[in-house]
Amino acid sequence: MTEILLSLRGLVVGLRHGHDVSPIVRGVNLDVAPGERVGVVGESGSGKTLTMLSVLRLLPSPPLEILDGEILFAGENLASASERRLREVRGAEIAMVYQDPMTSLNPLLHVGYQVAEALKAHGASTIQARETTRDALRQVGLSDPERVERSYPHELSGGMIQRVMIAMALAASPRLLIADEPTTALDVTIQQQILDLVLDIQTTTSMAVLWVTHDLGVVARLVDRVVVMYAGRVVEDAPTRELFRHPSHPYTAALLASLPGTQHSHRSLLHQIGGNPPDPTRLDGGCPFRPRCPFAIDQCAHEEPPLLPRGESRAACWREPDSWLP
């Protein structure tokens, strides 16, 4: 077995009201090796952000909390780590780029100060932190880092803030970078530049990457492996090339079919997939995708499929892809 940097085992995240619990992330299993780039895709509300926030134990709690499972980071279970230990890990070993960057910076402090703060928290001197900050801001393609440093968040555009957030995460040279839709506010060229930067950093360090995105184009270019989430679970976990060629889950196939300009043969079969993802707190015990699945069989209504091996991939579907792929 290869070395594992991060391993989520049966992660359950949900709301707790008194003795009642309602899970939203329902048993996620996910491994990331050092230096590996893993993409996480899935519809809005499938639990991507909650899963990522749990890794750093930054869930908005209350009301959300980790209800079950382990978060093994380099063998250590962060789910039961002390706040003191978490402070050592956060920002130094695992850094995160948050979704919704516009509200993710303190409005009352200079941007440069906030980036440097992340470095100083882990022992950098003021001068060191300032130098590293400037380099990091330049690296993400901000042309006038001095000006950006002296700005307040409200003086910068969404795209600039997003790059600041990426710079802040990368500046600390973490072992794991978690990026939650980090390039949504960026235009295509800058997006390319950011992806190149991440790939470049990876050639010299063994930084692993967890990249949450809606954009399968980014996935194709950046990541080695893709994890598809649906209704709080992983429904497919596959090498990128394999996922594009032979999707093993009908939902993945539907995602691919919705890509503009694809000439996937299963397109016609799946174009009718409409509807919305289910409310994760109201599942009936069958496959959560069943209401939208054109290939459902009787078994799908009674039992929720676990992740089953399908060639090089794993998929949570009772049916072999050969039986429904045209």
Binding site: L58, L86, R87, R90, T103, L109, E117, H122
Partner: peptide, 20 residues
């Protein structure tokens, strides 16, 4: 608020987080 989460995510000391 989101920026408080960012601050905690930097791993800074409790004092810095609370006051700054």
């Amino acid at each position: 608020l989101n920026f408080s989460r960012t601050a905690r995510g930097k791993g800074m000391s409790q004092i810095a987080y609370v006051w700054r």
